[in-house]
Simulated scan of single mutants.
Amino acid sequence: MRAIGFATYKEWAAYRSHMAVSLLVGPVYFLVQFFIWSAVFQGTTSLNGFTLEQMLSYFGIAAVINYLTFDFADWNLQMLVRSGKFVTFALRPIPHWLFALAQKLGHRSLGFLIEFVPVSLIFLFIFGIKLWPTLPWWALLSVSLSFLMNFMVNYCVGLTAFWLVRAEGVRRVFLLLKDISAGLFVPLTFFPEWTQKALFFLPFQFITYVPTRVFIGHYELAGYSIGIPALVALQAGATAIMAFLMLALYRSAMRRFTGVGV
C-alpha cells in the first residue's frame, strides 16, 4: 500500500495544477456562502442555534475537511469496468478496493500540501475563520473515520457498474443526494424534523456533518445532543458497518464479473 500510495503521489504531482485550482474554487465558494448567509442573518442574531460567525465557521471547517476526505473511487472504478481494464486488477494479488484505498492515501497526501494547507491559511488570515478544533485528538480521529466512510460510500457507488455498466446517471444523482445528506450545502439542523430523524440513521452525516461538529465541539441533530466521545464512537460503529457492507457488495460484484483481455 505504501508503494501504491507513493506512486499515486508522484503521478498526481506531475499534474498538480489540477489541485491548485482549489486555491481559487474553495475561497470563492466560501465567499458566496458569506454573502448568502450575511443576507439571511440580517435582522436576526441567531438562526436554528447558529450565529452568523458560527455559520461561517461551519462552512469554513466543512470546506477544509472536504479537502482531506475528497474521493473519486466511484468514477475510477466505473471507468475501469466500462473500459474492461478492471480485468487486470482482478488478476492482482490484492483486492481492488485495497488498491483504491492506497491510491486515495497518496492522492490526499498531495492534496494536504497543495489544497488543505494553503486554503486553511486563506480562511484563517483573510476570512478570520478559526480552524483549531475544540478537542484536537477527537477531531483527528473523526476526520480519519470520515476519510474512510467517504471512500467506502463512493466505492459502493462505483460497484454498481458491475450491474449497470454505464452507471454515470445513477452516480451523479446519488452523489448529489449524498452531499446534501452529509450537510455539505447546509447544516442538517435546517431540515424538517422528520428529515433530520431519517438523516440521523443514514451514514452520510458521518462524512461532513459529524466531523465538522466534532471540530466545533458540540453536536445536535433530530433532537439528539451527543457528547463528542460518544459521537466519535457512534461514527466508528457506522464506519465498521459500512466496511462490512462494502466488502459484501465487493464479493458479490466479483462473482458477477466477467472480462477478457491480454
Rank of each mutant, 00 (worst) to 15 (best):
A3Y: 11
A3D: 15
G5D: 10
E11M: 13
E11W: 10
W12H: 14
W12Y: 10
R16Y: 14
R16K: 14
S17G: 08
H18D: 06
H18G: 03
A20L: 13
V25C: 06
G26K: 03
Y29E: 10
L31R: 11
I36Y: 06
S38Q: 07
S38K: 09
Q42D: 13
G43R: 04
T44E: 12
T44H: 08
F50A: 07
T51C: 01
T51R: 03
S57W: 01
F59P: 04
F59G: 05
I65C: 08
N66L: 03
L68D: 10
T69Q: 04
D74N: 12
W75Q: 12
W75K: 08
N76T: 09
Q78K: 11
Q78H: 14
M79T: 15
R82K: 13
S83Y: 00
K85W: 04
F86E: 10
F86T: 07
T88K: 15
A90I: 08
L91M: 14
R92K: 15
P93N: 14
H96S: 09
W97E: 14
L98G: 09
L98N: 12
F99S: 09
K104R: 01
H107L: 11
R108H: 05
L110T: 00
G111H: 06
G111L: 08
I114E: 04
E115W: 15
V117S: 12
P118Q: 00
V119I: 10
L121E: 05
F125T: 03
F125R: 04
I126N: 03
I126T: 12
F127Q: 02
F127P: 05
I129C: 04
I129T: 12
I129S: 06
I129E: 06
L131R: 12
L131T: 11
P133I: 04
W137N: 06
A139S: 02
S146R: 11
F147Q: 04
F147T: 05
F151V: 07
F151H: 03
N154K: 00
Y155V: 02
C156R: 15
L159G: 05
T160I: 05
T160C: 04
L164E: 12
R166P: 02
A167Y: 01
A167F: 02
V170Y: 14
L176H: 07
K178M: 13
S181I: 00
A182C: 13
L184P: 01
F185P: 03
V186N: 09
V186R: 11
L188A: 01
P192V: 09
W194N: 09
T195C: 08
A198F: 10
A198Y: 09
P203D: 01
T208G: 05
T208H: 03
Y209L: 06
V210A: 06
P211Q: 03
P211A: 07
G217M: 02
Y219I: 12
E220M: 07
E220F: 04
E220A: 13
A222W: 04
G223V: 05
G223E: 05
Y224T: 00
Y224F: 08
I226G: 01
G227T: 11
G227N: 14
A230Y: 04
L231T: 10
A233E: 12
A233T: 11
A236R: 00
L245W: 05
M246D: 08
M246N: 12
M246A: 08
L247T: 13
L247N: 07
A248L: 06
L249A: 12
Y250R: 02
Y250E: 11
S252M: 12
A253H: 02
R255M: 14
R255D: 13
R256F: 09
G259C: 09
G259Y: 06
G261Y: 04
G261Q: 07
G261N: 07
